[in-house]
Structures are given as C-alpha cells and as structure tokens.
Amino acid sequence: MIQTPPGRAFTLPRKAVLLAAAVFVTLILVPAFCHQGYALRLMGMIFMGIALASCWNIMSGYTGYIDFGPAAYFGIGAYATALLMVRGGVPFFLSIVLGGVVAVAFAVPVGLPTLRLRGAYFAIATFAFAEATRQAVLEWDRVLGVNFFQGSHGITLPIGPTHQFFYYTFLVIMTVLFVITYLVERSRMGYALKAIHEAEDAAELIGVNTLKIKIYAYAISAFFTAVIGGVDAYWLTYITPNDVFSVHITIKMVIMCLLGGMGTLLGPVVGASFLTLISEPLWARFPYDYLIIIGVIIVLVIVAMPKGIVGTLLEWKVDSRGT
C-alpha cells in the first residue's frame, strides 16, 4: 500500500500527474492517426472494460462486499437509454445520464436492506436481484399484456455513430471514473471504505456510519454502471434482457477487477486491459475452446496470484523495501 505522509494527503507525485496527462493526451490523439475501425473498436472495448471494472472496484474492491448483481444496473441503464431514445426522442447524452439516475433510484432502496447482509448472503442477494430484474423485464409485457419492454424480442435503437464516437465516449467515462477512484481513495470516504473492509464493527464503533458509506459507494457504482450500459446499448443498437442483464457482465466485471487487483487504483486498468487483450485473439483463434481457456486462466490466477497483478507487484515492492 502506498503510504501517504500525514498532512500531505492531497498532493500527488508530480511524475504521476505528468504521466497520466501524457497518456490521456495520447489517447485523445490516437483516432486522428489511426483510422482502423478494428483498432478503435478494440480500444473502445478496453475503455469500457476499465470503466466497468472501476465501478465494481469502487464498491466491492474497497469494501470487500461482493456485489454479484451489477448486471442489473447495466441492464437498467441500457433499457432506460433505449426506451428514452426510441420512445421519447430524448438525446443520447441526456438519456444515459437519466439511465444513471434511474439506476440510483433502484440502488438506494435495494441497497438499504441488502447492505446489512454480510459475506455470501450479500453476494447471493445481489445476484437474486439481478436475475429478478432480468426475468421481470423479460416477462413484463406478456404478464401485463402491454407493449413496453418487448420481452425477448428486444429493442432496436437508432443506428449509432462511428466507432470513433464510442471510443471518445468511453475514454471520457473511463477517465472520470479513474479520477473519482483516485479522489475517493484519498478522501474521508476512502478511509472509511477501507476500514469497513478490514473491520466493519470496529469502524462503526469509532463513529463511521457504515451503512451510509456503503450506500454511497453502491449508488456511485450503480450510476456509472448504468451509464456504461446505456452507451453500450447505443453501440450494440439492439438489446435483449438476456444480453444486457446477463450474469456474464457481472462475472466479467468481477474477474477484470480481481485479475488486476481489488481495492487498488490501477487494478481495473490492468485487469480489464489484460482480459480484453487476451480474450480477443483467443476468441478469434479458438472460438470453441475460448471459454474453457478463460476458465483455466481464472483458476490459475486465483490459485497462483490471489492479490491480482497490481496487488502482487505492490507486495513485491513492499517486501523488497523491507518493512
């Protein structure tokens, strides 16, 4: 863990700021020189992965509460955006923000009871919530005899702009999430989140309103997950409940975060880049064995590197310095 000298909690090493700025500027300039649709699409997907993993990291990475239901908010965002754009003619950017607001409107009442649960119970409850939402959207029209979500027929959105548009959209969202994670980590809230992770009862006893802090983290996570879901819906142009509420979205978020290192600033960046970059060629080379290979990688990483890539590197660094 990086040590912050007391009283200087708000300053960042100058080199790190410069490096981050340089990376950001380079990424802004990439599309001007690279016109390959494939490369931009792949980069866009990496940004989306990083953003998703960061959402999960803010909640579960820092608190240790394993959220197995973020797919619910991804799906809510996707459907809210699709319905607003198609039915209401609302502009895209407004739609995704409203999608995020809808997600928060769900997250607070859902979080209030579930965030009192611990361990496996929280994980299973959030999973149940996500599956219940998927089923509800799937069956809504048939049960109520209306034509709203269109069940398994799905919804077609207006044809989206180019890959370049999504490249920039996800770049912005990813950057915002990176900055938020950085700020949260150094803020009062960050300390509280870590304290909850380590010893929740002790944190409560020294004055931390643990439920409130957990709700904040859960709502922030839900908001951005839904925004990303909305953008992805526009990119996909066609969504069904089984796609956007899929448990595989949840699992992907969890695994990217875990691969990189939970509760670290760079974990989601490393994990999402790594997983997306190895998935693509594997998917292309071994379409039938792809999921088997991913399964083997997951098991190997868990057994060999339980702290994730960033966590393992940090540990080496600490050990080599000697404490």
Binding site: M1, Y191, K194, A195, E198, I206, V208
Partner: peptide, 15 residues
C-alpha cells in the same frame, strides 16, 4: 480489531 492493512496513523485518523 485494527484495520490491519492500514497504517497505525490511518487507523487513528478514521476515528
């Protein structure tokens, strides 16, 4: 019940 992965100072800081 210390917050084991936080430093001693950070533990007190939360309080």
């Amino acid at each position: 019940q210390p917050f084991t992965r936080m430093t001693v100072a950070e533990n007190v800081l939360v309080g």
